[in-house]
């Protein structure tokens, strides 16, 4: 339990660091030196030191947005098995709770964006409301797959100890699709290229970044930290899936886990470097692919089991 809590705290604290790896990879491909690996901490510290400017159009919901999206991100991490360890909390059906909790975070992010009366933020909000619908369907398809294999409905039954290895043994090849499908969901939910380009300069083409335009100071800091945590959540799952090994020596386990994380973040960076952003009307098709993959994996397991 103590160990899980420490891991949870470490996850929140280290999430910004891993995101910086992604930036480094992008810089490398762009032929630049790139910002230091601690850049996100500098930004967060700077933001938390500042005061805030609020738009006259906004109400209390605008202030609730960052709070609830951050809370939902860190609450979700409490249910996540990190490096194969048991999570702080776990119960049958916690996955559904987690997914809907993220929905709650999204509701308030969107509501906060609509609160500013800005046309650009409304546009971003509309997209933020659209794409995750298909993502959610894909997530539930993956859950169906996992449930079919294990008969459980909680994250700890998939990602703790040697459960993941067992999953590979049961699932085999279809799990590869699940990994790809999950990676697509990761890109979509965390607004990375090719769905959304966080580094673009034009507000018209953004999704997530445009929604937080009016936030400033600690509020913005909470949003940023929350999105790092969210990315960490997805990356942890992918990392556990690609390196499912369980070691007797815990140091080895952590090493492999961090290695997996680095691979995932580098992969995201690589994707961002080599793929251009899709046209907005192509995005649903991209996300639908992830659903198709998960569905497809489930059909194949029907053959195997």
């Amino acid at each position: 339990m103590i160990e899980s809590i420490i891991l949870w705290l470490l996850a929140i604290l280290l999430a910004p660091f891993f995101s910086a790896i992604m930036f480094k990879v992008k810089a490398f491909f762009g032929g630049r030196k790139g910002s230091p690996l601690l850049i996100n901490y500098y930004t967060l510290i700077k933001l938390f030191k500042k005061g805030s400017v609020y738009s006259t159009s906004t109400t209390a919901v605008f202030k609730l947005g960052p709070i609830i999206s951050f809370t939902s991100a860190i609450t979700v991490l409490m249910f996540l098995p990190i490096a194969g360890h048991h999570p702080i909390f776990s119960f049958n059906g916690d996955v559904i709770f987690i997914l809907y909790l993220m929905g709650l975070g999204r509701f308030f992010t969107i509501a906060a964006a609509m609160d500013t009366a800005s046309p650009f933020e409304g546009m971003g909000a509309a997209r933020e409301a659209y794409f995750p619908i298909i993502c959610e369907a894909a997530m539930f398809m993956i859950l169906i797959f996992f449930y079919r294999l294990t008969g459980h409905l909680q994250l700890s039954a998939y990602f703790t100890g040697d459960n993941t290895i067992a999953l590979w043994n049961l699932g085999g090849a279809p799990l590869l699709f699940i990994v790809i499908s999950f990676f697509i969901i990761l890109l979509t939910e965390n607004s990375r290229v090719p769905v959304d380009d966080p580094a673009t300069h034009l507000e018209l083409t953004m999704i997530h970044e445009v929604m937080v335009l009016d936030h400033s100071g600690p509020d913005l800091g909470l949003i940023e930290l929350g999105s790092f945590c969210k990315l960490f959540f997805y990356s942890t799952i992918v990392s556990r899936l690609i390196l499912p090994f369980d070691f007797k020596i815990s140091a080895m386990g952590y090493f492999v886990f961090v290695l997996g994380l680095i691979i995932v973040y580098v992969a995201i960076g690589l994707t961002e470097s080599v793929i251009a952003r899709y046209r907005m009307d192509k995005v649903p098709q991209f996300v639908l692919t992830s659903f198709a993959l998960a569905f497809f994996a489930t059909i194949i397991t029907l053959e195997f089991i």
Binding site: G51, S52, V53, Y54, S55, T116
Partner: peptide
């Protein structure tokens, strides 16, 4: 902290 009010960006 100082909190200021202003129009939407």
């Amino acid at each position: 902290k100082t909190i200021t009010k202003s129009g939407t960006w």
